[in-house]
């Protein structure tokens, strides 16, 4: 018993020493930044954690990530807690674009810069926003779908099944907004929209199962996340369809979507440029934290031509989303290939 206690004591001392040894390394960082991630249940978010931690480390900051499990109230609590910890900055990918507004204002008033990542909040001022633009993803998808329909039917006409994510999530509603706005110009296109509750894959499969029977003339399925397209493909397969028989377009650029392109089931994946979005945050981190002026203009982020604008809600960098097809699916720049850039990013002058 005594020997065991002594061993535990020795282990404790060893751990304490190890902590002391690593302390100077921690002291070398410029400080802590908190990343409030909406959920860890999809691959985009998981990869965003890795990317932000890596890029912020490149420019000298330590990133601590807090997961809100897609719950607005949890994220509101997190932002309030983090304000008390006085970090160098808060990177926020909001669960609910509007509900987080008071938290953002409180943090900004306390002198803590809030950086909006991936999800744009236009109703209040933030220190910086790095987005691909969810409405724009809808635009890109619409352009690609127009091309696909034209190639198949000679003109832009036909029936589209649009499978949204959870109807309470502004992210999916914005994609829908962008997509439908661009498709309005084509009266011969019928769009059937159905939400997959809680972004759950089998719900998407169920929708496809039912709709393909009720509307056998569906030409194309547009799903708002790649993990839902996997269930859509499984449902099509179950109904005896072959790859390419019903066209498929998805968004966010997850690895599963890219795999489906390779297998011939999916035509296009609209990518959110995750790595570039995260790298942009790191490139401007010093300026944001030191409260230096960010000027409008063009800037290259990981080779992508991006544009910084000064908006009512603060400096905003918009990085173009890309359409991935069989022709370019293997390019390492797409985050779905999970080959994060190894080159360290540099802070902008």
């Amino acid at each position: 018993m005594f020997k065991l206690s002594r061993r535990i004591l020795m282990a404790g001392i060893a751990m304490a020493l190890a902590g002391t040894i690593t302390a100077p390394a921690e002291a070398e960082t410029k400080g802590k930044v908190y990343y409030l991630v909406p959920t860890l249940l999809d691959e985009f978010q998981t990869e965003s954690v890795k990317a932000l931690e890596k890029f912020m480390k490149d420019v000298g900051y330590e990133t601590v990530t807090l997961n809100a499990d897609n719950k607005t109230d949890v994220q509101q609590g997190q932002i309030n807690d983090v304000i008390n910890l006085k970090p160098k900055a808060i990177i926020l990918a909001a669960v609910d674009f509007e509900a987080l507004k008071p938290g953002i204002e409180k943090a900004m008033a306390a002198g803590i810069p809030v950086i909006e990542f991936d999800r744009q909040i236009t109703s209040t001022k933030s220190a910086f926003t790095s987005v691909a633009g969810t409405v724009e993803i809808g635009y890109v998808a619409a352009d690609e779908i127009q091309k696909l329909l034209k190639a198949k039917k000679g003109s832009v006409k036909g029936k589209i099944l649009q499978v949204l994510g959870d109807p309470g999530d502004p992210y999916t509603l914005d994609i829908q907004k962008g997509f439908e706005a661009k498709m309005k110009a084509f009266p011969d296109v019928t769009i059937i929209s159905k939400p997959a509750m809680q972004w759950e894959a089998s719900n998407a499969g169920t929708i496809v199962n039912d709709q393909i029977l009720a509307n056998p003339d569906i030409d194309l399925i547009f799903v708002h996340a790649a993990h839902l397209s996997v269930a859509a493909v499984a449902a099509l397969e179950g109904k005896g369809k072959k790859p390419g028989e019903v066209m498929l377009v998805s968004s966010n650029g997850a690895p599963v979507g890219l795999d489906l392109i390779r297998k011939g089931w999916q035509n296009v994946e609209v990518e959110q440029p995750l790595y570039a979005q995260a790298a942009a945050v790191a490139m401007f981190a010093d300026k944001i934290i030191n409260k230096q002026e960010i000027k409008a203009g063009k800037v290259k982020v990981l080779g992508l031509e991006s544009e910084v604008t000064i908006e009512a809600w603060g400096p905003n960098i918009k990085i173009p989303g890309a359409a991935i097809s069989k022709a370019n699916v293997d390019e390492p720049k797409f985050w779905g290939n999970l080959k994060a850039p190894t080159e360290p990013v540099k802070a902008v002058e």
Partner: peptide
């Protein structure tokens, strides 16, 4: 059975 139907699994599978 659900994994067989969706040909795999995602972390939020079965939610609700």
């Amino acid at each position: 059975l659900l994994a067989l139907r969706t040909s795999g699994a995602t972390a939020n599978l079965g939610t609700g």
